[in-house]
Each structure stands twice: as structure tokens, then as C-alpha cells.
Simulated assay, not measured.
Amino acid sequence: MLDASIPLKLQEIVQRELDCDERVVWSEMPKPKYFSGPALGMFLFAIPWTAFSVFWMAGAAGFKIPQFNNGEDLFPLFGIPFFLIGIGMLSSPLWAYRNSLRTVYLITDRRAITIDGGMSYTIRSYTPEKLNDTFRREHKDGTGDVIIFRNSWRDSDGDKQMQELGFLRIDDAKSIELMLKQLAEPANARERRS
């Protein structure tokens, strides 16, 4: 039961991922948003970053258009990489939106699958044994996230970082969480018996 609104390219990737007799029970794409949490934070940080880089380049040029006829006029060009980084951060909401249009979530009769798009595709498969700690974060309208796996680590500064994986920005998060728990139930029963 693959959702008809899923683009053909994603449908082909899904078909390649499925085993020959595996059946799709549920499929959905995330609701595209320009300003998801991480993209919004980066966008807000990018505003002063980019503004300062433009101001710095203008100041380095003496607030006039450089003539580039002597070596001093080349100094403002050192600000270009910082300006380009700022433009990249300002466009992060567009990239987040674009990536959500290349992402699909699946529940089959055997496992849960996420296919995350971008420049390449990342495919994560969660067998029933991996669905034990599933939980949801839900909004008042029923949309939300169903978190399947949490990955935490310490960065080079020793600060704790967290990545949550699962079905993000979906409709009816509660029923999807229930479907995942039902898929995990036979594995939980086997674990209790042993």
C-alpha cells in the first residue's frame, strides 16, 4: 500500500529496498516545512553572520568600490568565504524543505524503514527488535514525530549531542506509534520467554 503521492523516483527506491514478498502496510512523506528546528536556528544565526561579513568587506574596502589596481584593494576579498558561508546558512530552510520532499517513511509487515533524501539517499531499516523504545512527540492537531532511535555522543568540546531518528513531521503520530509497537510485540514476546 504505497501512497500514490510519493514521487516515482522514491517509489523506485522503495521497491528496490523491499524483499520480494514483503508488503508495505503504511507509507508517508514528512510534512515539508521551511523552518524546522535546526534550520530555524541556523537561519537566525546566519542573519548577523552574513550582515557582519558584508559590513566587514565594505569596511575593508573603505566603504567604496575597490579598484583592484594595487594590493590593498584585494583585502576585502578575504571576506568572501564568510559571506558565502552566510548565504549557505540563510538558505538552510530551503535545503530542509527540499530534503523533506525526498524522504519517505514505511512500515512493512516485517520492519520500519526510513529513506532520507538529499544529495544521496540514507536508508535505515528497523527490525522489530529495534522498536522497543519507540515514543512520540505530538502536537495538538495530532501531527508529530515518532522517534525510533536516539543517538547520543560527545563532541570534540565534550558537549553532549543528540540525534533522534524515526518518522518526523507526520500526520496521526499516535496511530503510527501503535503500529510500530504492534510490529515489535512478537519480538518482545520471544524476549520475555527466553
Rank of each mutant, 00 (worst) to 15 (best):
Asn132Leu: 13
Pro128Glu: 06
Met89Ala: 13
Phe75Ile: 12
Ile87Asp: 00
Asp133Arg: 12
Arg102Ile: 06
Ser125Thr: 15
Met119Ala: 13
Lys130Ala: 14
Phe63Arg: 03
Ser92Glu: 12
Ala61Leu: 05
Ser120Lys: 11
Phe63Ser: 07
Ile115Leu: 15
Pro128Ile: 04
Thr114Ala: 09
Gly86Trp: 13
Met57Gln: 12
Gly71Tyr: 01
Gly118Thr: 08
Gln67Asn: 13
Arg111Ser: 03
Pro66Met: 01
Gly86Cys: 10
Thr127Arg: 15
Ser92Trp: 06
Thr127Asp: 14
Arg111Trp: 05
Leu84Tyr: 05
Pro66Ile: 02
Gly79Tyr: 07
Ala58Trp: 12
Ile107Asp: 10
Leu101Pro: 07
Pro93Asn: 02
Trp49Gln: 12
Phe68His: 03
Gly79Trp: 11
Ser125Ile: 05
Thr122Pro: 00
Met119Phe: 15
Tyr121Gln: 10
Asp133Lys: 15
Gly118Asn: 11
Thr134Gly: 14
Pro81Leu: 01
Pro76His: 03
Ile85Gln: 09
Ser120Gln: 11
Arg102Met: 14
Gly86Met: 12
Pro128Gln: 13
Ser100Lys: 15
Thr134Lys: 08
Trp49Glu: 03
Tyr121Ala: 15
Phe68Pro: 03
Thr122Arg: 13
Leu77Tyr: 03
Pro128Ala: 06
Ala60Phe: 10
Thr134His: 01
Gly117Lys: 15
Arg102Asp: 02
Gln67Cys: 06
Ala96Ser: 13
Gly88His: 08
Ile107Gly: 09
Ile85Pro: 01
Thr103Ala: 02
Val104Asn: 08
Tyr121Glu: 14
Leu84Gly: 02
Leu84Trp: 08
Pro93Thr: 05
Leu94His: 02
Gln67Tyr: 00
Ala96Cys: 00
Leu131Arg: 08
Asn132Gly: 14
Ser125Cys: 14
Phe82Trp: 15
Thr103Leu: 04
Arg124Asp: 14
Arg111Lys: 06
Ser92Gln: 05
Phe55Met: 07
Phe83Glu: 02
Met119Gly: 10
Leu106Ile: 11
Asn69Gly: 11
Gly62His: 08
Phe83His: 01
Thr114Arg: 08
Ser91Ala: 15
Lys130Val: 07
Ala61Thr: 03
Asn69Arg: 01
Asp133Met: 11
Gly59Thr: 14
Tyr105Phe: 12
Gly62Asn: 08
Val104Ile: 00
Tyr126Asp: 12
Arg102Lys: 15
Leu106Arg: 13
Val104Asp: 05
Gly88Met: 03
Ile80Cys: 05
Val104Thr: 14
Ile65Asp: 05
Trp95Asp: 13
Ile85Met: 09
Phe75Gly: 01
Arg102Tyr: 02
Phe82Pro: 00
Glu72Gly: 10
Ser120Gly: 01
Ile65Gln: 09
Thr50Asp: 10
Arg98Trp: 04
Pro81Asp: 00
Gly71Thr: 09
Asp73Gly: 04
